[in-house]
């Protein structure tokens, strides 16, 4: 009689459960009978780099950084889309061409706006 094809999976699950439980149980027994727990302020601290933590963990970026976001989109992210567009240019349908044109025009508007605001001038 051949065993059920899923029989080995059941054996595998059993081994996978028993295998970690044995050392965990041994460790628990060791702690219970031999090693006294010694908790402390620093041992239980969350941060573990030797430096005392201070302040809040949740910080907010200032909204003034939107300028960097816009210029990053214009000069960096745009190139990522333009290169595959240029490679596949000859085989593109008219819809795709219009879509990329809309994308370019939107970014161009951002460029004009940033230029007009003087963000692209060298600081003297």
């Amino acid at each position: 009689m051949t065993p059920h094809p899923y029989f080995f999976v059941i054996i595998f699950i059993g081994v996978a459960l028993v295998f970690p439980v044995i050392p965990l149980g041994l460790a628990w027994m060791w702690r219970r009978f031999f090693q006294p727990p010694k908790p402390g302020m620093e041992k239980n601290a969350t941060y573990e780099c030797g430096v005392e933590s201070l302040g809040e963990a949740q910080i907010q970026f200032r909204s003034q950084y939107y300028l960097y976001a816009i210029i990053f989109l214009i000069f960096d992210v745009e190139a990522v889309f333009l290169v595959p567009f240029a490679v596949a240019f000859t085989g593109l349908p008219i819809g795709a061409f219009v879509a990329i044109l809309v994308f370019l025009v939107l970014l161009l508007e951002g460029l004009v706006w940033a230029w007009g605001k003087g963000c692209l001038n060298w600081a003297r």
Partner: peptide, 12 residues
């Protein structure tokens, strides 16, 4: 102080 704190954070 950082060394001592790191030592304190090590488990026995």
């Amino acid at each position: 102080p950082q060394i001592v704190r790191l030592y304190n954070q090590m488990p026995d």
